[in-house]
Design a protein around this nucleic acid. Structure first.
Lengths: 210, 210
DNA sequence: TGTACATCAGTGAACGCGCGTTCACTGATGTAC
DNA sequence: TGTACATCAGTGAACGCGCGTTCACTGATGTAC
């Protein structure tokens, strides 16, 4: 259709299959979604799927791999600009939270994988990301030797408290939304949780702006 | 068997069915677990299940309802002893985290329900718990009018940051465990996250002990 | 430019299988008189 | 204490159905000479 669209018929169909499968699986889960449903959504016979994809298993694996923002996560951790520990933490927190929030599909696919398929997808992702998280923790520590902004916390606590707050944000985003009295309209929740986190790991409130 | 066991044969079988279903569903998910598998685990014919349970749907609903620590959660929020805002927050954080951590089965069943069955179970739980969470927030606020320990944060932020950190703890407990370099052996992670949270919402570090 | 052929994308029928649930039934257990 | 009967717990076969996948096939599209 568009100018940058030299996709063959086959590629087009494959993309349609992936898109339909993603939508159905996000809605119903992996086991509850059938190849027949996917074929119908694409407008094709079930048998036709097997011209483009080896089977249901490979289809889901493709889906998860395609949705994972792994490279972006790594680039983000490696491309942090800030000089101070507080700045690094702020930048990483905001960046990672934004990354996950903008890839909610991936988060949900990963949860489905974990629950219905032993979590092979997450299991391969964590080891790939781990060294970069560790590198980030060391960098923060090294900067703090100069600036002394951080409370005396073990580096793993810095990292886990951050990941926990970010993961918790994603989790509560879906649950607490329904509790009206806890909803502040137009409120910058991500910023508020970042603020609580920074205040929690820094020595003094004033240092936060460094 | 034991002294306090006047269970009829039927009740015994029903409990066996619930136990077997719970184990299988936690392992494989709801859709992927069949009535035949459950019957086999119990040592009984599939048809026999229907003498004790209306169907697969009701079986799962029973399971979730039985696993939910709803009353304990409410009792905990209502029975807080502390006088100061900081004390209340600390007690609630530690209590709720402990409650969820000791009911991991429920957390997982609720996630399965949310993913494979539209989340009917969670949907009924949140409104039941919500008023007590709100009452708790008001209580903290009222005490703070006297003590002035808290930073100037909207009460919903206090609550959500806490729920987010607790939820994040449950989430990262399963994922980050596998990253060896982030594991501090024998470390009191719950205490560390509580510490970061309190430090994050209180005005001064010294006030935490109040 | 025309022809022969290979590759591609999709069809329709069928495979063996496991699913949730129902049904008529069988013994064993409990209850009433 | 004995007998008649209702209830209980479980069986085995069967129901209609949808599952993932395979297979022989058909046209359409692309390629080589």
């Amino acid at each position: 259709m568009s100018a940058e669209d030299p996709l063959s018929k086959g590629e087009q169909t494959k993309q349609s299959i992936l898109a339909a499968a993603k939508e159905l699986i996000l809605d119903q889960g992996y086991t509850a979604t059938s190849m027949r449903q996917i074929a119908q959504a694409v407008g094709v016979t079930p048998a036709a799927l097997y011209n483009h994809v080896a089977g249901k298993d490979e289809l889901f694996t493709l889906l998860v791999r395609e949705a994972a923002p792994l490279e972006q996560g790594i680039d983000l951790l490696q491309g942090l600009q800030a000089d101070t520990p507080a700045g690094l933490l702020r930048e990483a927190f905001a960046g990672l939270l934004g990354l996950f929030a903008s890839h909610e599909d991936y988060v949900r696919l990963a949860l489905i994988d974990a629950q219905e398929r032993d979590g092979a997808a997450l299991a391969t992702l964590v080891p790939q990301l781990a060294p970069h998280i560790l590198g980030f923790a060391r960098r923060v520590q090294a900067r703090d030797a100069v600036h002394g902004q951080l409370r005396n916390l073990p580096p793993p606590v810095l990292v886990r408290a951050m990941m926990s707050q970010i993961g918790g944000y994603m989790l509560t985003e879906r649950v607490l939304r329904e509790v009206n009295e806890l909803n502040l309209p137009q409120f910058d929740w991500a910023g508020a949780l970042l603020d609580v986190y920074l205040h929690g790991v820094l020595r003094t409130p004033d240092a936060e702006e460094g």
